[in-house]
């Protein structure tokens, strides 16, 4: 071998191939076989056992009374409650998001008073537990007996008794919406700050005015960052509607409570509620995935190619991730 000869020119060239290697067919990683990974097999087995136990518990334990669950799953009272919960969620989410965008813009404003007011709002409404806010709004009549429209410190045009205006429904809507707006304001603000400042420069350089630059250029790009936490927010809001049962709103939880107070089928009725909550959450998550794809467009080099990433199937064997 000339490898050790010390000839400088030799160190940069490849050593002569080992004759043993030469006899084998040329290497091609396409023909490689996956590696055996015992750890994954073990973990898989553990999960399988746990899963099987859980399944026997769910099916075998007769206290679940699956026949009662089936009986009440589509009961009109339950469905009405479900409808109410979904309606509260959608309204609070839509109005809350719109308000949140305004508040986020306010927090980023260069006009001090607007910035302070928005920040104060977010601080207060994010800081007080939603349950407290709901009860507070429900009891608004104690604080302000009359609600009126007019010129501040001037004449009033119309006036209602707060007791008439504040029904459980309006209290629930106001409470959930205002609370939601504070959270959405923070989410939207983070999204806006995540957009490259050069984008706003370019938008203004193209002659777009402030509103156009915000709605055409900044917000669509912020959406990419805004949507995932908004999805979680939507879900926690749906679950949060169960709070309104304390002010006698007939939401999903309240309606199953009404039934089990009569029949004492507490566990099966709660299972009914769980099934519906999980169903709606699953639908929402699927919607979120679609939105994420929509707003993610143009952000990575393959985004316009239809379909998602290829995911590994089982992954018991294979390369380390």
């Amino acid at each position: 071998m000339t490898l050790l000869s010390g000839d400088a020119s030799m160190t940069t060239t490849h050593p002569a191939p080992d004759p043993a290697v030469q006899e084998r067919p040329p290497d091609d990683v396409a023909a490689a076989r996956p590696r055996f990974r015992p750890g994954r097999w073990l973990l898989g087995a553990v999960l399988l056992v746990v899963g099987a136990q859980l399944a026997t518990f769910l099916v075998g334990n007769e206290r679940f009374e699956w026949d009662v669950v089936g009986e009440y799953l589509f009961h009109p009272t339950v469905l009405q409650g479900l409808g109410m919960s979904v309606m509260l969620t959608v309204i609070a989410m839509v109005v809350g998001s719109a308000l949140g965008v305004v508040l986020a813009a306010g927090q980023l404003s260069d006009f001090g008073p607007v910035r302070w007011a928005s920040t104060l709002y977010v601080g207060v409404f994010r800081g007080i537990p939603p349950l407290v806010q709901l009860i507070f709004w429900y009891n608004l009549a104690f604080l302000v007996p009359d609600v009126s429209i007019g010129i501040p410190f001037g004449p009033t045009f119309a006036s209602w008794s707060a007791n008439e205006v504040i029904t459980p429904l309006t209290a629930a809507l106001i409470g959930l919406t205002l609370h939601e707006a504070a959270y959405m304001a923070e989410i939207v603000r983070a999204g806006i700050l995540a957009v490259d400042p050069g984008q706003r420069d370019a938008a203004r350089a193209m002659g777009f005015n402030g509103r156009q630059a915000f709605f055409k250029v900044v917000l669509p790009q912020a959406m990419r960052v805004i949507i995932p936490p908004t999805g979680s927010q939507f879900i926690s809001l749906l679950k949060g509607t169960s709070l309104v049962s304390v002010i006698a709103m007939s939401d999903l939880l309240h309606s199953v409570q009404v039934i089990y107070n009569r029949t004492y089928d507490v566990i099966p009725m709660l299972v009914v509620a769980c099934i519906w909550y999980l169903t709606v959450v699953t639908v929402l998550s699927l919607g979120q995935k679609r939105l994420e794809r929509h707003f993610g467009r143009g952000h990575d080099r393959t985004a316009t190619v239809a379909g998602g990433r290829r995911r590994p199937r089982l992954g018991l064997a294979g390369a380390r991730a």
Partner: peptide, 20 residues
């Protein structure tokens, strides 16, 4: 904004709108 429209600007970092 109307005055800016009469000038064209090209940035070091391109700043194309990635969502379009």
């Amino acid at each position: 904004a109307r005055q800016r429209r009469r000038m064209g600007m090209v940035f070091q970092q391109f700043n194309l709108f990635p969502h379009w």
